[in-house]
């Protein structure tokens, strides 16, 4: 009993350390880039030694891949069979947008790696876009007919454009900018133009 409890304690501490390593690494990857971040830098931010990090992750690449796996794919709400209203679709797009905007460090980390041409990060991006498209296309088709999937694709690209432009323009300040009400309001206005009312 006592031994099992101790093992649980150790496991819990271990998994907490793992979470701390991931959170710190994400912040450093976002601020300094993957190449500009060393395992030593991650360790010293956490008052750990390098071997303590290597106990949890075999390499810096493994830390990155682990973060990549946790990035927000597959959170899109599945389609039901009703014809959605335009307002409903705009709301769904806004919740996707807001879910993205709530993870600013992850977005900056991914953008840096994707733009450098890192294959795993770009693979993840394509998978996320494909899931987004596959999940929401039936809804858009029910409302907009055959132009639905193209409207959806455009709205997905606009979402990326807004986020990438803001990362480039605000850098470290991106995390504060996404909290500003105007940031989401502007996205909603652009979605409203891209997704026009359907004539009765």
């Amino acid at each position: 009993m006592a031994q099992a409890a101790r093992r649980n304690d150790v496991e819990r501490t271990g998994s907490m350390t793992k979470q701390k390593i991931l959170a710190t690494a994400q912040e450093l990857f976002a601020n300094n880039g993957y190449n500009g971040t060393t395992v030593k830098a991650i360790a010293s931010r956490l008052d750990l030694t390098d071997p303590a990090i290597y106990y949890h992750f075999r390499s810096k690449r493994h830390i990155f891949d682990s973060l990549l796996q946790s990035s927000g794919a597959g959170q899109f709400v599945a389609a039901d069979n009703e014809v959605p209203s335009r307002e409903d679709l705009i709301d769904r797009m806004m919740s996707t947008f807001n879910a993205y905007a709530r993870q600013p460090d992850m977005l900056r980390m991914l953008f840096r790696q994707q733009y450098r041409g890192d294959p795993a990060s770009n693979q993840r991006r394509r998978e996320t876009m494909a899931t987004f498209q596959a999940t929401l296309a039936p809804l858009f088709t029910r409302l907009y007919g055959e132009t639905g999937p193209a409207i959806l694709e455009a709205v997905g690209l606009v979402t990326l454009g807004i986020i990438w432009d803001a990362i480039l323009s605000y850098g470290h300040g991106f995390a504060q900018v996404v909290e500003q009400p105007w940031f989401a309001q502007r996205a909603r206005k652009l979605f409203e133009i891209a997704m026009p009312p359907v004539p009765a």
Binding site: Q114, Y115, G117, N122, R125, R126, M129, A154, G156, L157, V158, T159, L160, G161, I162, W164, D165, R186, K189, L190, I193, A194
Partner: peptide, 22 residues
């Protein structure tokens, strides 16, 4: 707003394709 939409659309598109094609 439409100018903004044009620009955000083209940024999303251009960067995605630059990421894939370098």
């Amino acid at each position: 707003l439409r100018v903004d939409l044009f620009m955000m659309l083209t940024i999303g598109l251009t960067f995605s394709d630059q990421m894939d094609h370098g």
